[in-house]
Amino acid sequence: MDDAPRPLGVVRVESGDGRVDGLLGRLADLDELPVAEHQGVYEENHEGLRAVLSALDVAQGPPPPSVR
């Protein structure tokens, strides 16, 4: 039995947003990194994705007032 780590083989579909695709592409590096370094990559991705979402919110502006 071989206990060596093996890539999961998960196929990633491009999102169409270069910022998001760049961040998610970094996850492919996990196969080559020691497990001790995985948390840092996950945290980097989480913060990066939050920044992208925040930028989208700012670009759209506040929602219109609701009609009652």
Score class of each variant (00 low, 15 high):
G9D: 06
V52Q: 06
D31S: 11
L30Y: 05
V58T: 11
V35Q: 15
E14D: 14
D21V: 04
L56K: 14
E47Y: 05
D3P: 04
V67Y: 14
R50D: 13
V58E: 15
V35D: 14
H46E: 15
A36E: 15
V13A: 12
P62C: 03
A28M: 05
M1G: 12
L27E: 10
V41S: 04
E44I: 00
L23D: 04
R6P: 01
V11K: 13
D2T: 03
P63Y: 03
N45C: 15
G25W: 02
D29H: 06
V41Y: 03
L33G: 06
R26M: 10
V67D: 15
V35W: 12
E47P: 00
H38S: 04
G61E: 09
Y42W: 14
E44V: 00
D17C: 00
A28E: 09
S54L: 05
V20C: 08
L24C: 11
E47M: 04
R26Q: 13
H46K: 14
P34Y: 05
L49K: 09
G16P: 07
R12Q: 13
Q60M: 14
G18W: 05
Q39C: 00
G40W: 00
Q39Y: 02
Y42D: 09
V35N: 09
S15H: 11
S15T: 15
P64A: 11
D17S: 02
V13M: 08
